[in-house]
Simulated assay, not measured.
Amino acid sequence: MLSFLSPAFVIAAAGPWALAACAFIIFAESGLLIGFFLPGDSLVFLLGMVSASMTLSDSPVSGMPLWITCLIVSVAAFTGDQAGYETGKHSGNIRRIKSWVQGKNRNRIKRAQRFFDDYGSQAIILARFVPILRTFVPFIIGMTHFNHRRFIIANLVGAVIWGVALPSMGYALGRIPLISNHVEIVCLCIVLISILPLVFKAFTSWLSRSEEIETK
């Protein structure tokens, strides 16, 4: 992981603005299409660890009540997804995106629309826990003009679960010296675990394509 994208670096470098910087990164990861490379899970987990006052004890975030951290993370995640949805919803007014949607990708958009009509709420909630997916899913759902009220409800559920679960896990595990003394390793493990669903999906897709080729 690049040093300037390291969660520990972000929190330490931001100083008194650490929580605001983390909130912006969480928002940007799903609210801006360029945010797919930003640290999300590991950053939120580390915020919980710092709140436990067992690591980065000189940080202004250290000792902050856990509920405040959870609230800010949840709000940033929720507003980020809402921004991504609205961007996708109004992207039809952008000439280049409009031609992309109405061109050879028209059928793909229609398939995506059918998928989100059937599994939209579950997909929105699960995407919140998977890097890269949580960047693009709100935008794509917005493009399909998925029901706004359903999106808000699913987005709220996913944001609150994610915004409470990860900081709470970090807070609990951060009180264990063995874990709090190896922050970088823990953050790397979180990143690897969070991308496992993508790796598994890619592997199963490759396996199915290989079987199709063999049967032909």
Rank of each mutant, 00 (worst) to 15 (best):
L2F: 10
S3G: 13
F4T: 12
L5H: 05
P7D: 00
P7C: 00
P7E: 05
A8T: 08
V10Y: 09
I11K: 08
A12K: 11
P16A: 14
P16E: 12
A18K: 04
A18I: 03
A21M: 08
A21Q: 04
A28K: 01
A28Y: 14
G31N: 10
L32V: 10
L32K: 08
F36V: 06
L38M: 01
D41A: 09
G48W: 01
S53M: 00
M54I: 13
S57M: 15
S57I: 15
D58W: 11
S62F: 11
C70F: 06
I72P: 00
A76W: 03
F78V: 05
D81F: 06
Q82H: 08
A83G: 05
G88T: 02
G92V: 04
S99T: 14
S99M: 14
G103K: 01
G103Y: 00
G103R: 00
K104N: 05
R106Y: 14
N107E: 15
K110Y: 11
A112D: 14
A112S: 11
Q113L: 06
D118K: 04
Q122T: 10
I124N: 09
L126H: 06
L126T: 14
L126R: 04
L126D: 10
I132E: 01
R134L: 00
T135H: 02
V137E: 00
I140H: 03
R150Q: 13
V157K: 03
L166R: 01
P167I: 04
G170I: 01
Y171T: 08
G174S: 08
P177I: 09
L178D: 12
S180H: 05
V183H: 02
C189F: 13
C189H: 12
V191W: 13
P197W: 01
P197H: 00
V199H: 04
F203W: 11
W206Y: 12
S208T: 13
S208V: 15
S208G: 11
E214C: 07
